Simulated assay, not measured.
Amino acid sequence: MENIGAYKVSRPSLMSLLFSMIFSSGILLLNTRNNMEYNVLLYFGYIWSAFCLIVVIILLYRIITIRKFIEVRILPDSIIVENKEIQANQIDNIYVKGYFIPVIGIKPVDHKFPPYRLCFSFLDEEYKGMKELTAWAESNQIKLSKKRFMRWL
C-alpha cells in the first residue's frame, strides 16, 4: 500500500464549547439559588449543573492531553488519523463543516456521530488536502456531505 498523501491537520477547538458550558451552568446555578421554593426545579438545576461540570472536566482533560497537531494519511483503501486506521468500508459518511477553515468529521458505520478523534482541519495544504479527500471519497463510494454536524465528546 503506497501513500496517496500525508497532511498536517489540527483538532477543532473546544474552547467555545467549554465557555458555553461554564456560562450556562453558572446562570443555572444562580437561577436555582434564587428560586429555592420550587423543589422540582431545584433538583433539575443541580442535576443539570452536575452534567455540565462533568462535560467541563472532560473538555479540560481533552484540551490539556490531546495533541493539537496530528497527521492524516490517505491510503488507497483507508485513512489513518493519528494512529487509528479506518478502512473505507467502515466509513458511513464524511462531513465537511464550514467554508474558510472547514472541519472534517469522519463518521464510522457503527457510530451515530463522528467521534472527536476523527475530526480535523487541514493546516498547510488545505486546498490540496480537501481535493484529495474528495477524490478519495468518490473513488471509494463514500458520501461526502457539506453540512454542519455534531461530534461526540
Rank of each mutant, 00 (worst) to 15 (best):
H111D: 13
Y95H: 00
L53P: 06
T134G: 05
Y43C: 09
M15I: 15
F44R: 11
I64S: 14
L59M: 06
V103D: 06
H111F: 14
I57F: 13
C52H: 08
W136I: 01
S25G: 07
A137D: 01
I63V: 09
W152L: 15
Q90W: 05
S49C: 07
I79F: 01
T65K: 09
I4Q: 03
L17Q: 09
G45T: 10
E2M: 10
R62H: 08
E132K: 04
L118K: 03
V40N: 09
D77L: 06
F100S: 10
G105E: 02
E125A: 10
P115K: 07
V103A: 08
C52I: 04
S16F: 09
Y7C: 03
G105S: 04
V96T: 06
I27C: 12
H111A: 11
I27L: 14
L75K: 06
R33A: 15
P114D: 05
P102E: 04
Q141L: 13
G105P: 02
V40M: 11
I47M: 13
N39A: 15
L118T: 03
I106E: 02
G129K: 04
I58Q: 07
K8M: 06
N89S: 13
V96H: 00
I86E: 03
F100H: 10
Y61P: 08
Q141M: 11
R117T: 15
H111M: 14
M1P: 05
F51K: 07
L53Y: 08
S121V: 01
K112I: 14
S145F: 06
M1G: 11
A137I: 03
K147F: 00
E2V: 07
L29S: 06
E2H: 08
V109P: 06
A137C: 06
N35K: 11
